[in-house]
Amino acid sequence: MTLFRHELRQGRTALAVWTASVGFLLAVCVGLFPEMKNEMAGAGALFASMGAFTAAFGMDRLDIGTFIGFYAVECVNVLGLGGAFYAALTGVSALVKEERGHTAELLLTHPLSRARIVTEKLAAALAQIVMMDLALLALALISILLTGQTIPWREILLLHGACWLMQTELACVCFGLSALLRRGGPGLGMGLGAGAYLLGLVANMTERARFLKYLTPFGYCDGADILVSGGPDPGLAALGALTALAGAAAAYVLYCKKDIR
């Protein structure tokens, strides 16, 4: 557990900054709802008639004049995008940062197996994502209460739960890539996070692009889909969980064989 604790200490600043940034935006978003609600009555028809843009954000299937409809479109986008970037960055940096910072020689000449190093680093990355998600959930709940709304527990937990799974999948895939890299990482992580988000938007635009939901973890954490279907698509979520496992397994295989130059 020494390495696990060390990883948490090393990552605490990034965790605090990302949590504060995403949490602030989330709280602002929730705080805007009472004012937006009054203006939504007139704007609802406009938002519902913007074609592909409307479909991309799921506004053709949700009433953003209701709190949960607004939350699923606006707040889940903030939560999803911010969470995806943080998860991708945390995952992609976890292993490669030792080679990038020239600390790999120091770490890997201690009596720890490579598998143990991968396990403790992966556990630390996933724990940081859970910590961020719990903090964001708490902030969201407090913001909802402060704006005088009733907490729609089931929907909020489903939306946050799906975002957690999406971040876990992205973090594990990026963690697998981290085992392969010798330098760099953040750019690739940000690119993957942004790419996955954009694929999710495009997948909502037309029926022909719907297959893209199988390629991006945003496929099962789309707010509109979750509220309309009563939960994330189980097939897509299971595929996401399997992809996360494959990413983690790849990290074990690659890192245990990797030459540390």
């Binding site: 020494t2 060390h6 090393q10 910072g101 020239h102 600390t103 020689e105 120091l106 770490l107 201690h110």
Partner: peptide, 25 residues
């Protein structure tokens, strides 16, 4: 092992690095 290029994790004090190394052992 003493590597030719000495690098430690950022933000650490000497005592933290020594404790970490001992903890890993």
């Amino acid at each position: 092992y003493l590597p030719a290029e000495t690098a430690f994790w950022p933000g650490m004090r000497v005592r933290d690095a020594l404790r970490l190394s001992a903890g890993l052992r």
